[in-house]
Amino acid sequence: MIGLLAPDSGTVEVEGEDFWAASLSRRDEMRRRFGMSFQEGALFDSMSVGENIAFALKRHTRMTPAEVRERVAECLALVRLDGIEGKRPSELSGGMRRRVGFARAIALKPEILLFDEPTTGLDPITTDALARVMIRLRDRLNPTMVTITHDLKVAFAVAERVALLDAGKIQADLPPSEFEASDDPRVAAFVRGDGSEDAGPARREEVRE
């Protein structure tokens, strides 16, 4: 969605503007309105936590160093990791790394936040903590959030709309409660966690407006 891969067919539009038809610099301008969090955090390990979050601020804004520092602290506070600016990504736990990834994604105050598998490979408690941070970001910053996850608890906790993506198509797109109660065999199999049916969906996508 932010143009890491070009679509084989069809178009990607950002608020009505065709992303792939745009010039390179226009694409970067569009990307600045997005914040993206990656599966394992994808923090720059040559930099400290603070430098990671400040990266986009230093490159794309004219903020003074003091303003940058203040904004970095603000972002870290939002993900409940105050005061770890000086740490290296390698010193952090998996859950913390992802929260720093969230903080980096929100540094430029994006209108659209993307989460790619935010809780994969984490224990249930850390997963719950991360879901709470996501809800907090949703309520404080009020962005459009798109999360790709196969963790139903996270999806139901965070989302206003839940969609099921299977075989390259969106198979269902419902509010969480209806999604949970859906009698579409594919959706129901996913909700039950039933792998016996051959129509077993590979992945779930959850969308929040």
């Binding site: 890491l4 990307r31 914040g35 990656f38 994808a42 720059f44 040559s46 980096r104």
Partner: peptide
């Protein structure tokens, strides 16, 4: 090695996501 590790840990995708060539 450095750029390769950045590639496989999605750090290069993160650069793109942060509107950096």
């Amino acid at each position: 090695a450095e750029i390769g590790s950045m590639r496989v840990t999605e750090q290069i995708d993160a650069l793109v996501a942060l509107a950096t060539d």
